[in-house]
């Protein structure tokens, strides 16, 4: 692992200057190779969508390319009837696309749909194409209690002729959804499905803070699998500790906003200001009084 990492980083180190050099010479380089990456996602077994990423390979560097228009077809390449849509990649070179309702018939045709992506040639991107075949699948998550242990179960099926068939030998992660990542429910990095399509693991994260009621969002996750793509199914379970969200945001303090200044400071500061300025105002009234006297003389 360590040697691999070292190797990878040596590579990165070599790539870094090249990457910079490559950026500078974008205009000149003729050997640009444009690439489309397709990823298939299904979250909570609902609407599947494709993520499209456009990158240019310049030398050894892969640079995301923004503003590329990509056409995507379902099952029948370059068939106007099967057009899923046309997307333009964002600044990170990424775009997403769901299945429009009009393609319902085409979608039901096959249990292993194929996606075809095309780009036209432009100044920033070459004409290129990519295809991706996926198996329609279903990832189910459930909980169980085995001798007091909290068990999270996942089951993976694929669709064959409108019926579900368990899928074996697929790695499934069982985790708790956290900000920006997934915290494994136990020590295991992932679990492999058996012949019934099931994988299960014990939840042993004691006192993991959940929401105010102690609920956690647990997920079963298949990450970028060659056959089924990326699947994620969530579920809420009361296995966490009730989260305590203490905040001194509304307290008066020296670092709070002006309207939440500490009282002692306000008393001191405004007290001093009031004291001195009342003297000044008094003195100004004295000047006015002297002026009045002049008039009365």
């Amino acid at each position: 692992m360590k040697t691999y990492r070292a190797l990878r980083n040596v590579l990165l180190l070599i790539c870094c200057p090249l990457l910079i050099a490559a950026q500078e010479n974008t205009a000149k380089k003729e050997e640009r190779q444009s690439l489309i990456y397709l990823r298939y996602y299904v979250i909570n077994n609902r609407v599947p969508y494709l993520q499209v990423q456009t990158k240019n390979k310049l030398g050894r560097a892969f640079l995301p390319q923004a503003n590329v228009s990509v056409k995507i077809y379902l099952n029948h390449d370059a068939d106007a009837e099967s057009l899923m849509g046309q997307v333009v990649t964002n600044e990170k070179g990424v775009a997403t696309l769901g299945l429009p309702a009009s393609l319902a018939g085409k979608w039901k045709e096959k249990s292993n749909p194929t996606f075809f992506a095309h780009t036209d040639s432009s100044a920033d991107f070459n004409a290129t194409q990519e295809e991706l075949s996926m198996i329609k699948s279903f990832l189910e998550v459930d909980t169980a209690n085995e001798g007091g242990a909290r068990i999270l179960k996942a089951r993976l099926f694929k669709y064959e002729n409108n019926s579900r068939v368990p899928m074996a030998e697929v790695d499934v992660r069982l985790a708790v959804k956290r900000l920006g990542g997934y915290l494994n429910i136990g020590e295991e990095e992932s679990y492999t499905t058996d012949s019934t399509g099931s994988a299960q693991g014990e939840f042993n994260r004691t006192d993991l803070p959940g929401d105010t009621l102690g609920n956690l969002d647990v997920v079963a996750l298949v990450d970028d699998n060659d056959e089924v793509g990326t699947l994620e199914t969530q579920m809420k379970v009361p296995w966490g500790a009730p989260g305590k969200f203490e905040s001194n945001f509304n307290d008066r303090s020296l670092y709070a906003t002006g309207n939440k200044a500490p009282l002692w400071l306000m008393v001191m500061a405004y007290g001093c200001i009031a004291g001195v300025w009342s003297v000044i105002i008094y003195l100004i009234t004295r000047i006015i009084k002297m002026k009045r006297m002049a008039r009365s003389i």
Binding site: R46, D142, T143, M235
Partner: peptide, 24 residues
């Protein structure tokens, strides 16, 4: 579930676990 959006735990529709399915 549509009202609560994509983030809703739709997978649970298939499990009769009876646990809280609501999702903020």
């Amino acid at each position: 579930f549509l009202a609560t959006g994509l983030a809703a735990a739709a997978g649970c529709a298939n499990c009769s676990c009876g646990k809280s399915h609501t999702h903020e």
